[in-house]
Design a protein around this nucleic acid. Structure first.
Lengths: 146, 146
DNA sequence: TACAATAGTTACCTAGGAAACTAATGGGGG
DNA sequence: CCCCCATTAGTTTCCTAGGTAACTATTGTA
């Protein structure tokens, strides 16, 4: 019985960890006028290159409406552009020159935050944690599509 | 360099896992007209007994405003009562008879969901994951108070 | 007694999901 | 071949969840 109860604790821990992490990211990005959801999009665009909005949704595992909002804010700040694709329904999102120039500074801040948060977690444990969580997430999402 | 990049992935995995879990909880509780944040409060009250609102906040690691909202909704649904404490500022929250009666059914639903989600994760890995995440969270919160 | 600290609320912000909608695309039947 | 219809990309609206700042009311203390 004690076993089953502890599952509540596991879920709670993950939830709390997630909130703490995004709070840290927000604090780190605040000087630049950016928020965590925006950073996630900027990072993907920088790493993978330009992408349609739906591709961004799928990659970040986020529904369409929040993505629309995040991109509209980024566009208003002049960090991304939306060009219509071959298919006239899609909008291809790309980083602007302004974003390309500012990006290194953003990345420095985020990476140094990452280092700070992870310095107390040995490399080996980090890798193991990552693989466990990823495997679990994969199985969870797999089950949903059965 | 590849190493540092992977930290983005770790954070993203945790974030996504957290969202998936609360989505599952919400789906499970929807038939009862409850949401995940409410369930967290009900669970703590059932497990620990009546508590002041600020004690609930601390225990669940949530700020005061969201807690006020969650409790007000629970009160409106007749699941918790708020009695003024000795100190006239505090409100002591307790489960109503209605909640006590419905609780076992809620718990059954949630526990069976837990089992379903965790059946693909070996007991041993679960325990290890829990301890790693908890330790990390503890260190993170510890650093903030330095 | 004046003042700092605490409990809780209110107002406003970001993040995300569900449902209903619009516009464009792409396939079958006639 | 063309039209109707299902599908898809994005948007709008409205909901929950959580955080910050500013506020009120009470308490405790210097």
């Amino acid at each position: 019985m004690g076993d089953r109860m502890e599952t509540h604790t596991l879920f709670h821990t993950i939830h709390q960890l997630s909130r703490q992490l995004t709070k840290q990211v927000n604090d780190t990005l605040q000087p630049f006028g950016l928020y965590s959801a925006q950073w996630a999009v900027l990072f993907v665009l920088k790493t993978k290159g330009q992408m349609s909005q739906s591709a961004l949704c799928e990659y970040l595992a986020v529904e369409a409406p929040p993505m629309t909002r995040t991109i509209q804010r980024l566009a208003k700040q002049g960090y991304v552009g939306q060009t219509p694709g071959e298919d006239k329904r899609v909008k291809v999102i790309h980083l602007t020159e302004k974003a390309q120039q500012a990006y290194p500074e953003w990345e420095r801040a985020v990476l140094s935050m990452n280092d700070r948060l992870l310095e107390c977690v040995p490399e080996e444990q980090r890798v193991f944690m990552q693989s466990l969580l990823n495997e679990w997430l994969g199985k969870m999402k797999g089950d949903l599509h059965e």
